[in-house]
C-alpha cells in the first residue's frame, strides 16, 4: 500500500499531502507519524495541505487527532497552506479545528515552530 512520506527537517517533521487520500491512507499516515514523532523526538510537525482540493470531516478528524497525539508527545502541529475554498467549506461543514495551529505556508509554519523552540513568545497562546 502507498504511504505518505514524512521528511525530517531539523527538529520538525514535514508532511506534504499531495494526493486525494482514501481513508486507509489517512489512517496509515496518522500511525506512521505518531511512530516517527516518538522515534525522532521531533518538536514540531508541519502538515502542508496546499495541494488538497477538499478536506472533509474524516481528514479534519485526522488533523485534529495528529495535533492531539503530537501535543502529548511534546510536539506542536501546524497545518499550512489551506486553500480559501477549502477553509470556507470546512467552516460551513461545522469543523473549526480549534486544536490545530495554522500558517499560510511552510515557511511561516516553520517560523512558528522555531519561535516556540527558542522560547520566543508563547506558541500556544497565539491562538485562543
Amino acid at each position: 500500500m502507498d504511504r505518505i512520506p514524512i521528511l525530517k527537517m531539523g527538529d520538525a517533521l514535514l508532511i506534504t499531502i499531495q494526493v486525494d487520500m482514501h481513508d486507509r491512507l489517512a489512517l496509515a499516515l496518522e500511525e506512521d507519524l505518531t511512530a516517527k514523532i516518538a522515534a525522532t523526538r521531533a518538536k514540531g510537525v508541519l502538515i502542508d495541505i496546499s495541494s488538497l482540493e477538499i478536506v472533509d470531516s474524516f481528514i479534519g478528524r485526522m488533523l485534529d487527532n495528529i495535533a492531539a497525539v503530537s501535543r502529548m508527545l511534546d510536539a506542536d502541529t501546524v497545518v499550512v497552506g489551506m486553500r480559501p475554498a477549502v477553509a470556507i467549506t470546512l467552516v460551513e461543514l461545522g469543523l473549526s479545528l480549534t486544536g490545530v495551529k495554522t500558517a499560510l505556508n511552510v515557511e511561516r509554519g516553520m517560523l512558528l515552530i522555531q519561535k516556540r523552540l527558542r522560547g520566543l513568545g508563547d506558541f500556544s497562546g497565539r491562538r485562543s
Binding site: I54, V55, S57, P84, T89, L90, L93
Partner: peptide
Amino acid sequence: SLVDQTKIVTAASE
C-alpha cells in the same frame, strides 16, 4: 464556482 464545487464534493464525500 470553485467554492461551490468544493462544497458539493465535500458533501458527496461525507
